[in-house]
Write a protein that binds this DNA or RNA. Sequence first.
RNA 1: GCCGGGGUGGCGAAAUCGGUAGACGCAGGGGACUUAAAAUCCCCCGGGCUUCGGCCCUUGUGGGUUCAAAUCCCACCCCCGGCACCA
Length: 857
Amino acid sequence: MDKDPMDGYLPRAVEEKWQRIWDERGTNRFTEQELRDAPDPYYNLMMFPYPSAEGLHVGNIYAFTGADVHGRYQRLTGKDVFEPIGFDAFGIHSENFALKQGVNPMDLTPRNVANFTRQLRRIGGMFDWSHTVDTSDPAYYRWTQWIFVQLLGAGLAERKEAPVNWCPSCMTVLANEQVLGGLCERCDSPVEQRRIAQWFFKTTQYAQRLLDNLKIIDWSETTLRAQENWIGRSGGAILEFPVLTPARRGDLDRRDSPEPAASSDADKAGRDAGGDSASTDTPSISVFTTRPDTVFGATYMVLAPEHPLVPAITAPDRRSEVESYQAQAARMDLVTRQKTDKTKTGVFTGAFCENPATGEPIPVWIADYVLVEYGTGAIMAVPGHDQRDFEFARAFELPIPRVVAGPGTDAHAPLEEAYVGEGVLVNSGRFDGLPWREGARAIVEWLEGRGLAEPRVSYRLHDWCISRQRYWGPPIPVIYCGACGPVPVPEEDLPVVLPRVEDFKPDASGVSPLARVEEWYRTVCPQCGGQGRRETDVSDTFLDSSWYFLRYPSTDRNDVPMDPEITRRWLPVDSYIGGEEHAVLHLLYARFITMALHDLGHLDFEEPFSKFRKHGLIIREGAKMSKSKGNVIIPDPIIEEFGADAFRIYLMFLGPFAEGGDYRDEGIQGPFGFLHRFYDTVVSVVEAEDAGKLAASASQDPEVERKLHKTIRQVSEQLPKLQYNTAVAAMMEYLNAVRSGGRKASRGEVEPLVVLVAPVAPHLAEELWERLGHSESIFQGANWPSFDPAKAAEDTVKVAIQVNGKLRGTVEAPAGAGQEEIEVLARSQENVSRHLGAATVRRVVFVPNRLLNFVVK
RNA sequence: GCCGGGGUGGCGAAAUCGGUAGACGCAGGGGACUUAAAAUCCCCCGGGCUUCGGCCCUUGUGGGUUCAAAUCCCACCCCCGGCACCA
């Protein structure tokens, strides 16, 4: 330590200094009044982290840095940038970790939040620490519960018994979005189906709007596609197939009896069928199909094993077989059930339906390849034109007629596999000869006239199951009363505070740990004052995060969830940057909640994020970072050694931000060296000025000046498009030009670069800005430099000379030189004239300022 | 199977309104400065051939269009992401 510390760039000292100054001056803070008055608001949002015990990982830092660079750039152009951060602290993740460590999450969470806060400050994010949220704070989840109450009041929340996804390891139900390929998205256990009464939000009511609005929001294309796939709209029709077998009257009667479990089944079947067919005297089976044109080819029907009509229509001699098949299906976990390559299984129920088109009786089967939760849970099987039905028909020797003939085939062409292509209808009575699409329309119209069909759009989107049989979440604010039923907790009684419970371990019973805390759940009915019992399930973590961005600007208000005036000024969010892994989870739920709150009059916009950009994934050694692979990067030692600024630049430089990139430990040397050289360059400018060696206007260098203007242009274009890697490259290139051959830089050459670098290396930029004599923060004004297109323009250009498309030389010429001039210069080059030789030039292609191509012989 | 995105030096990547492929950086090699190291600076760095002037090959594979293709078209292979017995 015999060196003068001011001799060189010491990232740690610089960074600590500026983080302290930002804090003291409140550089990144808004007061409530400033939020109300900001003239040019820009809401820069990033996905808030869940505060794990391991601390911030590189993926978080990558995402936050990319978003922060964007925010800082916007700020340097003069916008009032609000950049909040918070903690998604509730949820099974934290709870599981707490269980493993034998710590109460109420103790663990504050520790993790404190550690995250320290790390987030250290990476130099422009966060407004006076507007954070913590979803596990009663002051926050009071309003999460308020949202539930609003939705319940609006009929958008309902409690129903339905087949739900049960994770046997997490011991809770999961939303559909949390099941990936039949596995729990959190722990990878195979998910089972259970029937439990749960609270649902009616996302399906918004399916079409959620889909339509995708056209008007500026989001990453891949994210839009993911949502579109997830909503999964398909157009078709509901067709009715009357049941022929005078099936057991007794069974039908039993179905009609008011047994609560069964009534919710009938409810679903009735709703999906568009009529209450299950309880009429002549029941019919409703099916959804996207191919009503093939109805003449429907030779059998299949119900899902769980379909509510199964017991009613099953013939007595088939009952034991049917029931054992149902039991077998019920036992199967989702992974096994969803395998598509296994051979088709199923059993005949003994019942028959009438094909409404042909009038023929067709058998009714049950099979697990039909899913209860989609469409009506029943299908008409058209083996000739659906591959699954074809396989099933082959396995059980059912007839496979052709009803669509493609080009080059006719009505009698045998089918070796299902024909799913286009064609004209055949073997379809009076519809023969119609092209399939017209046929579909005509057939639906015809059946509709007889009350047997109805056009219908179906979505694969489900209602959102928000109940969780766990501890670490906001209690669902409902009280059950023997007399009044489920009653929402009155708004003035919110929050329903989660009690501290030492034994918070979940169990397989399907009820929450809170159900063991009698003194907590025993209460009085807010309506009649009688005895009541609290709902003991908590809500899904994704509900916490579905509205946090609405809360940030209003955290100064504890009497309302959102201050209307502030919300109007700041929302919708101007820029949201986050990971693709939330494309259909968080982002869909946030859209739904925003839309619902809009409809209830709480918001005047219905899409929360005007612009969303996904960022890529950081990989290392060709693989996703994970503890099991042992290739995770611990950020703290890197920041220790190289500084946050170098780390930030490196992360932004290693690949296109939207795509991610491969992290290499040595890679940071490049940006680190760049910052060192930049620091030295600026410091020596200041020293030279102080020593009076350099006049203010010294070292006019047209080459460097041109490069400067080109660099400003490029960086200004690329930063807003998140093309950080190439913007950083341009800055490096410019610094190389400034320093090339050991030349001395001048203030005018480096001062603009200090601003260009500021979004990626904010601490160093502040330091250099101060050394250049500025007393205010560089982020305090619209300091972004402008460029002069005239000064950025080259006055000489290199023109490529080709002969027959092959490069044979280059010539240097004034910009805009004409073809003749270039041609003369080109011919004078030995290598060019040699290749031209004696051949006749048949054509000359000239692209001004770029290329001249002689086409010979 | 359907819908997206991608495949370029030893490595991360640039360049896609068709116009000098490989900017910028890492790693590597050589040199300057230094007692030494670090930092800094200069040079080389896709492959092959070379008479040192250059020449040939090269953007997953095979065709095509064009004066000219990483870029456009057709066919195929591989990788990543989304959806998927969704009727």
